[in-house]
């Protein structure tokens, strides 16, 4: 599939749209300063009248803005705009600390942006109830985050149960989901997370996130902590699940091979900024930024080494 020639935004409403999104963190105490640059009023903790819009700062090139960043914080996500179409599998690639997790957490409102807006099927997520919003989105994280005191069955059916589904329906859904993620239901449903391998835990995490058939899946380095062979299997399963469920997937990774293999488009981030967002082919052919170019070149050099020595891919795990 080649999406690169399509003009974005012409047809349907994007599944997710980021409009000039900012997130600032305080370097010292690790908390957001809660400066909401683009919204008027309601700011409880104003810092000596410094809450001007970063857009304005950037366009005016105000020197005070630079000084401000030094003193009080930095932008983990910096003026990021992007459109994601319904049904896409987008990978977000960038080295550790470049703001990938922050971007994902703003998408399901675990973090609130300090500027800009995020739209889900054309509706501002800021105007929606966070809990309802999150139930429309699946969320999978690296450590799986399974509930250690619950069985696989209970982990997977936790939200359906909170939504008061009939027990029989919960059970059927669990069976369906475990089959979908490649776990033999009767063998695994009554196990506890501690009785599973890392890869199996990730599968359960995936099943749990898919429980209520969310239209959007947010995956934060879900395969970051599993070994290379398991990861390859999981990647294939993910592609299959994406095909079968037809949802919009946002997949964060720091592994360039994973990003280019899975994504129909790849978002490349560095220092909180979006450098390039395009199909893997286009990015390789026309890197839009020196950083992207270096990234591609280093990946190719590694590839070359593997091609010329041993014939299997070990991934570029850091």
């Amino acid at each position: 599939m080649n999406h690169s020639s399509e003009k974005e935004g012409l047809c349907a409403v994007p599944a997710i749209e980021y409009r000039n999104v900012y997130k600032r963190f305080d370097r010292t105490d690790g908390k957001s300063l809660r400066v909401r640059p683009c919204r008027k009023g309601g700011d409880k903790r104003k810092k000596q009248g410094e809450e001007s819009c970063p857009d304005a700062e950037a366009s005016a090139g105000a020197s005070s803005a630079g000084a401000l960043k030094e003193e009080s914080g930095f932008y983990a996500v910096n003026n990021l705009s992007a459109e994601i179409r319904d049904g896409e599998l987008i990978t977000i690639l960038g080295s550790s600390g470049c703001g990938k997790t922050t971007l994902l957490k703003m998408t399901n409102r675990l973090y609130e942006p300090d500027g800009g807006s995020i739209l889900l099927f054309g509706e501002d997520i800021q105007k929606q109830d966070p809990v309802q919003l999150r139930r429309k989105m699946g969320y999978v994280i690296q450590q799986a985050g399974l509930f250690p005191h619950m069985t696989v069955e209970d982990n997977v059916s936790v939200i359906p149960r909170l939504l008061k589904w009939e027990p029989a329906r919960c059970r059927d859904r669990v069976t369906e989901l475990l089959e979908l993620v490649g776990l033999e239901p009767d063998q695994y449903r009554s196990r506890y997370p501690s009785q599973l391998s890392g890869g199996q835990q990730q599968r359960v995490g995936l099943a749990r996130a898919l429980a209520t058939k969310p239209g959007v899946m947010l995956l934060d380095e879900p395969f970051g902590a599993v070994d290379a062979i398991t990861r390859l299997n999981l990647q294939n399963e993910l592609l299959r699940i994406h095909r079968e469920t037809g949802g919009t997937f946002l997949f964060v990774t720091h592994d360039i091979h994973e990003a280019f293999r899975l994504g129909n488009r790849v978002m490349i981030m560095n220092g909180g900024r979006l450098l390039q967002m395009d199909t893997p082919e286009t990015i390789v052919r026309k890197p839009a930024d020196p950083f992207v170019e270096t990234l591609i070149r280093s990946a190719m050099e590694q590839e070359h080494f593997w091609n010329s020595s041993i014939a299997f891919d070990r991934g570029a795990d850091k």
């Binding site: 957490k105 399901n108 675990l110 809990v131 309802q132 999150r134 139930r135 699946g138 969320y139 994280i141 690296q142 450590q143 799986a144 985050g145 399974l146 509930f147 250690p148 936790v158 939200i159 909170l162 995490g205 749990r208 996130a209 947010l218």
Partner: peptide, 18 residues
């Protein structure tokens, strides 16, 4: 309690009370 677990709990749509 492991923040990964509470993050996941919030992220899949539990209220703070849940």
């Amino acid at each position: 309690v492991d923040p990964a677990v509470t993050d996941a709990a919030k992220g899949i749509g539990m209220t703070w009370l849940q």
